[in-house]
């Protein structure tokens, strides 16, 4: 487990190194070098990826209102009769300092979970959701998002305020809809410092400290596990659909890059429902 975390963190960091290297210098100089081929090689070993809007649904704003809080919503589902299962969704923000934003892994029965979260977007960029199916095939949806400065935008709160509430969790079961018989929201108070934000008093950069792992279980069943990087916005927020399985409670466990863990359990029934 520790080994795999270390390896994953290395991949998140590797992306940063790649971004800092020659591949991106051209883009900054306005030569529009496309970072995607290199990112595809890095994150997916160069395996073929098909643009597949029928399989991958992805909502992202064309223009972000707040670059440090850009809502995104995505899911993948094979067509009716297709027995394949979605095992993983990867969110990639091409032009961010760390392009690998998050990897969501699903349980045996939860591959069609829809995830909504909020990310930082540092400059005009393609954002991609890549779905991996259990036959190893990769399917992608891409959106172009206009936003700037999300990773380096200074925190609204002071660091002391952020640390005072760090780790607080809020969980809500949301009203069922026709599309989703179950939907819930997990929020965690955490500055998710990107390492690119200048401390307001010391003028030094606040070290990166972010939620790197999060897992949500309905009873004993894994709904999704997330491995995240610095592109997830402050106070990480995940909305997800689920199929009620009769379990009495949801459990959430999270861990940040300092090794600090956060957890909670909540009734699976809606308040007052």
């Amino acid at each position: 487990m520790v080994r795999s975390i270390t390896r994953r963190r290395a991949v998140f960091a590797l992306a940063l190194a790649a971004a800092a290297g020659g591949g991106r210098a051209g883009a900054r100089a306005g030569q529009d070098a496309d970072p995607w081929p290199e990112l595809q090689r890095l994150f997916f070993g160069g395996r073929p990826i098909v643009e597949d809007p029928a399989m991958v649904r992805f909502e992202a704003p064309a223009r972000a209102e707040d670059a440090a809080l850009v809502p995104m919503s995505f899911s993948a589902k094979p067509p009716p009769g297709d027995p394949r299962r979605v095992i993983r969704l990867t969110l990639v923000i091409d032009e961010n300092p760390v392009p690998l934003a998050a990897v969501f892994t699903f349980g045996d029965k939860t591959g069609d979970t829809r995830i909504s979260t909020r990310v930082r977007v540092n400059s005009y960029t393609n954002v991609r959701v890549v779905a991996e199916l259990d036959d190893g095939s990769l399917h992608m949806a891409t959106r172009y998002v206009k936003a700037a400065g999300g990773c380096s935008a200074p925190m609204v709160k002071s660091m002391e305020e952020a640390l005072a509430t760090l780790g607080q969790m809020k969980f809500r079961i949301l009203p069922p809809t026709a599309e989703a018989p179950g939907e819930a929201l997990i929020m965690i108070r955490h500055p998710n410092n990107s390492g690119l934000q200048m401390d307001q008093m010391t003028r030094l950069y606040t070290p990166a400290r972010y939620i790197e792992k999060l897992a949500v279980h309905q009873g004993d069943e894994l709904v999704f596990a997330m491995e995240g990087g610095i592109s997830i916005a402050e106070d990480p927020n995940f909305r997800f659909t689920f199929k009620p399985n009769g379990a009495k409670e949801f459990r959430v466990e999270a861990q940040d890059t300092t090794g600090k863990t956060f957890s909670g359990a909540w009734p699976a029934a809606r308040d007052g429902a």
């Binding site: 400065g149 380096s152 200074p154 200048m198 307001q200 003028r203």
Partner: peptide, 14 residues
């Protein structure tokens, strides 16, 4: 002071 220190460079760039 802290608002200018934090956001000043960002404003100049943006």
């Amino acid at each position: 002071p802290r608002a200018l220190a934090a956001r000043g460079p960002f404003y100049l760039k943006a």
